[in-house]
């Protein structure tokens, strides 16, 4: 527990997203327990952990869908934790952080065509402009043809829907994009396409990524920094390459060993898991 590497917060660039001392309990369960980290501007930070480790709750607190019991979230130095009312406040918050959901089959309104989804977001945030060219630009940016603007979500594949969800998030021009298991519901070849797309978009727009995932392969692909969460707490953090190559915490080692591969022994992993729980 005391191996938390403070260097995550202390990268040379100024942090665009700063999270400090987040706590959230549901009854007796500590879903998020003293979570702090920082995301450098234009950087990419992964949060890994298994189901129930508190990573999704952390993401929902950051985007504002849940309230933290204590702790601060600030974007570009402006605090975000306080619940504010009013249209201007709401729109400003939306432009700080956007979220791409896990399941593209559920995160789009089944009755709204793709073009209308994007226009809605643009009309809300940039009223009074003609959005036709911007819609085309966004569709192009996520690798969808202009023809798909008229399509309903049900007429698209899972990967295409996730592209729409990404385009919708980018339409707001956020400083930080939180991707909550954004490729977990897609099959492997589509995962790779979407991850490449996300890497390209970060290069073009300079948006910061917060990747919430259980998949260490995804973390290896697209993040520079990683934090490992277990039972609501950060157990290890640091540059992705170092954490994956030389994990310090037994839980991180366990996660790495849990990835199926040749010579993989699920029984040994189950035993290690039990040992960790008793430790």
């Amino acid at each position: 527990m005391d191996e938390v590497d403070q260097s995550v917060g202390a990268t040379s660039a100024t942090p665009v997203l700063q999270v400090s001392g987040l706590h959230r309990t549901y009854g007796a369960v500590r879903a998020v327990d003293d979570v702090s980290f920082a995301l450098a501007a234009g950087g990419s930070l992964g949060i890994v952990g298994e189901s129930g480790s508190g990573k999704t709750t952390t993401a929902r607190i950051i985007v504002g869908l849940e309230q933290a019991d204590t702790g601060r979230v600030s974007v570009n130095g402006r605090e975000r934790t306080g619940r504010g009312r009013g249209r201007a406040h709401r729109l400003a918050r939306a432009r700080e952080v956007q979220l791409v959901f896990q399941d593209p089959y559920l995160s789009l309104d089944p009755r709204t065509p793709v073009g209308a989804v994007l226009r809605e977001a643009l009309r809300l945030h940039f009223p009074g402009a003609d959005h036709t060219s911007r819609v085309a630009e966004l569709l192009d940016q996520v690798g969808l043809g202009e023809r798909s603007a008229d399509a309903l979500p049900r007429q698209l594949s899972g990967g295409q829907r996730q592209r729409v969800a990404i385009a919708r998030a980018l339409a707001v021009e956020p400083a930080v994009l939180v991707l909550d298991e954004a490729v977990a519901a897609l099959d492997v070849s589509v995962q790779a396409q979407i991850l490449n797309l996300l890497a390209d978009i970060r290069e073009q727009t300079g948006v910061g990524y917060l990747f919430i995932t259980h998949d260490l392969g995804v973390v290896r692909c697209v993040t520079e920094q990683v934090i490992v969460m277990r039972q609501g707490r950060i157990v290890e953090s640091g540059p992705t390459a170092r954490v994956l190559a030389d994990p310090q915490h037994p839980y991180t080692r366990l996660l790495l060993e849990s990835v199926p591969r040749p010579g993989w022994d699920p029984r040994a992993i189950a035993a290690a898991r039990r040992a960790l729980r008793q430790a």
């Binding site: 504002g64 869908l65 432009r95 956007q98 709204t112 809300l124 707001v172």
Partner: peptide, 26 residues
């Protein structure tokens, strides 16, 4: 409870807009 409603909230739409444009038609 559907994620698309949360998605519209994150986008900054007001509850009123989400209800009228998406929930009531649904």
């Amino acid at each position: 409870e559907r994620p698309y409603v949360a998605a519209y909230q994150v986008q900054g739409h007001s509850a009123w807009q989400i209800c009228l444009r998406h929930v009531v038609p649904a």
